[in-house]
Amino acid sequence: MVTARSPAAASAHALGGRAEARPARWRRQLGAKLALLPLTAVVIVVYLGCMLWTVRLSFSSSKLLPVQDWAGLQQYGRLFANDRFLVSAINIGIFGVLFIGGCLVFGFLLAVFIDQRVRAEGVLRTVFLFPHAMSLVVTGLAWQWFLNPTLGLQKLVRDLGFAGFTFDWIVNQQMVIYTLVIAGIWQASGLVMAILLAGLRGVDEDLWKAARVDGIPAWRVYLSIALPLIGPMVVTATVLLAVQVVKLYDLVVAMTRGGPGIASEVPAKFVMDHLFERNNIGLATAAATMMLVTVVAILAPWIYARYVRETGRCP
């Protein structure tokens, strides 16, 4: 985002520096401002408004219908005494770290692989990116069948004669969260590959030639030269993946429905279930508020480091 904004700001400064008639500039800016007005209104009313409304409701005793009373921290008290919410919070942590890490590593390796100018590159690129083009509900269901011990992989291998083979993670309370990670990585690493590949293709050919002259092995060039150069791409990919982590819902519903038991519950599903099925808007909005607080807590230091401190240092 910072890369997108600063060139624009720079060009605006350049324009200002030029002797341009003031009213004309003002009029042009007015047009732009007017064009942006509806968007600004939507952002303030719909996004911010709904956010505040949600936070407000989390302090009420709303059940099926929203009510405007004041229940203090009652919903939060119940939320943090709730096993299912705590399991959800731990799960999203495990999922977030492994999913983002796994996608970046796997996506980077795929990108490097394709970057070797392999034959049928176009086909492979499409194949790797294809999972991302499909709905998580569809792929989740397919994974569910594949991992089901009485239908899928385990049965197949056992039918082949390996009677002792066991792969029952999806029905195992300790392991089920990792099946979600596997399915998630399979689905999203193609996207990371596409982003990083675009970055790798942008690395200057001369750097490669120079490295070759110096006799540096290819893996070292990728790690120490190419990777730092495509840093912004990695950041972009990470942000996209992080968004997927926060809103993780459909994959869980399609694959495990939060089971076995409550072993693969996630916060978004907690919110949805309480909002609709359990007629408990108060508790649902409290959980949603906690999700928001967590996201802000993670983003705030980053935004501070990225924008506030930087601009503060060089005015």
Partner: peptide, 8 residues
């Protein structure tokens, strides 16, 4: 008494 494929 249930089988392994029961969850879900």
């Amino acid at each position: 008494l249930t089988d392994a494929g029961s969850p879900g």
